[in-house]
């Protein structure tokens, strides 16, 4: 017993170190598992107000760009407005539309905090579960995809940006529909990589890439980027494409959250398949 005490006293520094380091690691791993729940609550209470103030200031710095972007968005929306169309054949006009059902709903949000310099970047938005945000919802901006919601608190949500080591988004070449996986390998926030693109794709430099609609988060056809370069590495059976992202992640301010109204149905269906697979085993 006495020896133990002597040992403890003599090595108190190492023990304290192990204790504190263990605590840090616990937080780190815990937060990997629970996906930044701790950070969200911190964003709520402690840094929330500081971020809010700062973002009020910095909002002025890129007002000009924001206005241009909003204008483009407005133009795109007006193009889709009923007033911009004329009916060629009134006989086919159907008011109570039973053929098309709305699948995606859009919710506006503002960026409260954002980074592009880390290996795994997150974005915090000022919308939370009280406004109907749920994990795995997609986030897009006027000029393309931004990320996927990971964690939600009452009034904020944390978005895993495309610039994250674990982000994988299914993207396709717009003109022929062949698809691959979009990844970010760190470094420059303006470029990402599209891997596993089959070699029968008629891809060329300058081609547009859009979301394929295969994942849960994004509808089909949201802008992703432009092909900057592509190559077939020796031994690979697929192309690796260098993608110029169309979203400027440094200047995010106004974004849209996408809610899939059929998500639950699809999830249930998947679950049923999983269960019957497990039963078959």
């Amino acid at each position: 017993m006495r020896n133990l005490l002597v040992f403890l006293v003599r090595n108190y520094l190492v023990l304290l170190f192990l204790l504190l380091e263990g605590l840090s690691m616990y937080f780190l791993v815990q937060h990997n598992v629970f996906q930044r729940a701790a950070a969200v609550s911190a964003a709520n209470s402690f840094t929330g107000s500081i971020y809010e103030t700062r973002s009020n200031f910095t909002a002025y710095l890129n007002l000009k760009d924001q206005n241009v972007m909003l204008n483009h968005q407005l133009a795109a929306l007006l193009n889709r407005d009923r007033g911009s169309f004329i009916a060629f054949n009134t006989a086919t006009t159907n008011v109570n539309d039973t053929v098309y059902r709305q699948r995606y709903q859009y919710l506006t949000a503002e960026v409260v905090d954002n980074s592009v310099t880390l290996r795994s970047n997150y974005i915090i938005l000022d919308r939370g579960s009280k406004q109907g945000v749920a994990p795995d919802m997609g986030v897009i901006g006027a000029s393309g995809i931004i990320g996927i919601v990971r964690e939600v608190s009452d009034n904020f949500c944390v978005v895993m940006s495309v610039l994250h080591k674990d982000t994988k988004i299914s993207a396709s070449v717009k003109k022929d529909g062949t698809f691959g996986q979009l990844l970010w390998n760190g470094g420059d926030y303006r470029t990402a990589d599209l891997i596993d693109l089959p070699t029968h794709s008629k891809i060329a430099q300058g081609d547009t890439l859009v979301t394929s609609g295969l994942g849960d988060a994004f509808p089909q056809g949201v802008l992703v980027g432009v092909v900057k370069n592509f190559e077939k590495k020796a031994g690979d059976k697929t192309y690796t494409v260098e993608v110029q992202l169309t979203t400027d992640f440094r200047k995010l301010k106004h974004v849209l959250l996408i809610k899939d109204l059929f998500r639950e149905e699809i999830q249930q269906l998947k679950q049923r398949v999983n269960e019957s697979d497990n039963n078959a085993k």
Partner: peptide, 12 residues
């Protein structure tokens, strides 16, 4: 860490 939203990393 609170500022970076990475609880544990800078602590460690």
């Amino acid at each position: 860490d609170v500022f970076y939203g990475t609880i544990g990393m800078h602590m460690a």
